[in-house]
């Protein structure tokens, strides 16, 4: 084994999510034991792909539970990226914004280094508004109001 290039590209959570979902459906794996529906060659899959199955299931569970991947789609991500490109953000910051979708100033400040001096509050709020518009969440308005008061 030789590692040619340890980091060729970044992957957003959504890309990973999408790809793992594909693997999951290709192999007819389910999330629970009952959902399992092994193909004809039972033995081969059961014995050999355990690790892949475990990591696919667990990673998907994590992405679904702790990150906002489920409300994203290629279209909304493209639009979000277009918007992010208008701001002077580093590539990695854009990726983090996309992965976490900060919905208040505190979480935005946690991701973007020295956000308060690089962008004024208006710009930050615009960014959060954009996130709320593209990826609507039920109680998003309250959250934003609370953030404004805090600030």
């Amino acid at each position: 084994m030789k590692i040619e290039n340890p980091r060729e590209k970044f992957l957003s959570n959504y890309e990973v999510y999408d790809y793992l979902k594909e693997i999951l459906s290709k192999n007819n794996w389910g999330f629970t034991a009952e959902e399992h529906e092994y193909k004809n060659d039972k033995k081969w899959r059961k014995n050999d792909m355990e690790n892949l199955e475990a990591i696919t299931r667990d990673t998907l569970a994590y992405l679904k539970k702790s990150t906002p991947v489920e409300m994203q789609s290629p279209e909304t991500i493209t639009e979000m990226m277009r918007f992010l490109n208008t701001m002077e953000l580093e590539k990695i910051e854009k990726l983090q914004i996309l992965n976490n979708l900060p919905r208040n100033l505190v979480s935005l400040y946690a991701i973007v280094e020295e956000c308060d001096s690089r962008f004024d509050e208006e710009k930050c709020n615009k960014l959060i508004e954009k996130i709320d518009a593209l990826f609507p969440e039920e109680q998003s308005e309250e959250v934003e109001d609370a953030a404004m008061e805090d600030a």
């Binding site: 030789k2 590692i3 280094e113 020295e114």
Partner: peptide, 20 residues
């Protein structure tokens, strides 16, 4: 320069190029 930062460019998920 209100900021001095080093971002070591990695992300949660990355693609690595490997031969085997």
């Amino acid at each position: 320069l209100a900021v001095l930062l080093i971002l070591i460019p990695h992300a949660m998920f990355i693609l690595s190029n490997v031969t085997d």
